[in-house]
Amino acid sequence: MRLFAAEWSRLFARRFTRMMFLIVILLLALIGGGIAYSSHVPTDAARAKAKVEADRQRAFLTQQRARCEEAVRNPRPTPSPGSTAGTEPGTPGTEPGGPPGGELGPVSTPPPGVTCAEYFNPAEIDDASFLPSTFGFAREAHDLVLVFGGIFAMLAFAVGASFVGAEWSSGSMMNLLIWRPRRILVLLTKLFTLLFGLAVTGALLAAAWVAAAYGIARYRGEVGRVTQGSLTSLGLDTARALGLALAAAAIGFALASLGRHTAMAMGVAVGYLLVIEVGLNIVLRLTEVPKVERWFLSSYVQAWLDKKAQFVDFTPCRYAEGDCAPVEWSISMDDSAVILGVATLALVAVSVIAMRRRDVA
C-alpha cells in the first residue's frame, strides 16, 4: 500500500501529467464551445420550412423511382453513332445546356443488385436534414464520446510513456529499487497505479463531457428522444472509449520501459503511423492486396469504438472488362478486442521480462 500511495502521489504531482490533462480539458472546451456557437434552437417556422423542402425532395424521388421502374420495364434502344433521332429542334430535353428528359433530367438506373425502390427511397429523406445546424443529444452524443475517446487515448499514451520513461532517464528508477528491490512488483505497481488513475480521471472527464453535451442540447439545440436503452448504449460507448485509452496507456508504458526513455515510446508511435499506417497502406493498395484494412491497428480501433467497421474491397473489380464485383466485409468488436488485447498484453509481458533480466543502472 505504501508503494501504491507513493506512485499515486507521483503520478498526479508530475508537471507533464497536469499539463496533458489541462490540454485535454482545453481541447474539449474548444470543441464544446464551437458546437454551442454553431448550433441553433429549431423554431416552428424553421421546422415548417424544412418539412416543405423535405416533402419536395420526397416527391422528386417518387417521380424518379416511377421513371426508373418504367425504364427497367421498357428499356429504350441505344441510338447508333451518328443518329439524329430525337435531336430535332424543339424536342423536349434537347435544348442546348439542358438535361435530356425535361425538368426531371435523365433517367438514372440503379447498379446491379439494387432495385429502383432502394435506389430512390423517399423514406430516407428526413426533415431534420433541412433544418439549420442543430446539435441533437440523442443523435450526436455517440460521436462526441468517440471524439473524447480519441483525445483521451492520446493523453493516456503520452502520460503512460512519461510516467515510467522519465524515471528511467533521470535515474529515479534505480533509487526506487533500492527502497523496493523487487523489480517486477515495482513495475507492475506503477502500471496498476497509472491505469487506475487514468480510469478514475477518465470517468470523471467523460461524465463531465456528456453532461456538457446534454447542456448544449438543452439550451442551444434539442435533446431528442432519450430512452433507457440509449443511455445504456451511451454508457457502453464511454466504457469502450476508456478501455481504448487504458490500452494506449499500457502500450506507451511498456514501450518507454523497454527503451528506458519517453522519447522511445513517442518515436515508435510516430514511426508506426508514418511507416505502417501511411507508407505500408499505400504500398498494399498499389499492389492490390485484398482486404488491406485488416493489416492495420487503426481499423481495429475504429471497429472497437463503433462496435463494427464496414469495408468494401474493390480488388476483384476488373474495370477494363466492364464488370465489378466488390466484396463487402467487416471487422467486429470482438475481433478488435482480441487483436488490441493481445498486442497490449504482449508488449507489457515483454517489458516485464526485460525488467527482470537486465541491469537497472
Score class of each variant (00 low, 15 high):
L345R: 12
V268D: 04
G224W: 07
P77S: 10
Y272I: 08
A249W: 01
E124N: 14
P111E: 08
E328F: 11
R67D: 09
E95G: 14
V278Q: 13
R356L: 01
A166L: 13
A59N: 10
G221T: 10
P92Y: 13
R218T: 15
L187T: 03
S298C: 01
S80L: 15
V360H: 10
E288S: 11
L273A: 14
F135L: 06
M355F: 11
L297S: 10
G34D: 02
D143C: 07
P290S: 13
T193R: 00
P110W: 03
I339N: 05
F130V: 08
I353G: 04
P106L: 10
R56K: 13
V186T: 04
S133W: 07
M264N: 12
R139G: 08
A269K: 09
T17N: 00
W295K: 12
K308R: 14
D313V: 10
I339L: 14
R67Y: 08
Q310G: 03
I353Y: 09
S83H: 12
Y214L: 15
V268Q: 08
V145D: 04
L104S: 08
F311S: 06
V352E: 02
V164D: 01
R15V: 13
A239M: 15
R76E: 15
Q64G: 04
G113F: 03
V348E: 05
A141M: 05
G101W: 05
L258D: 02
D55A: 10
E277A: 08
D44T: 14
A203L: 07
R76Q: 14
P122K: 06
V186N: 01
L144D: 06
S80E: 15
G150T: 12
K307F: 11
N121M: 11
G171N: 00
T62F: 02
S299C: 09
E7A: 03
A346T: 15
T227Y: 03
H142D: 15
S129F: 11
L280Y: 12
V312L: 14
R218Q: 11
E69I: 06
P75C: 15
M1T: 07
G235T: 07
R240C: 00
A250N: 04
T344I: 04
P42K: 09
S330L: 03
A29L: 11
T227H: 06
M333K: 10
P132Y: 02
L305C: 03
D323E: 13
E140P: 06
M20T: 11
F137V: 08
R65L: 05
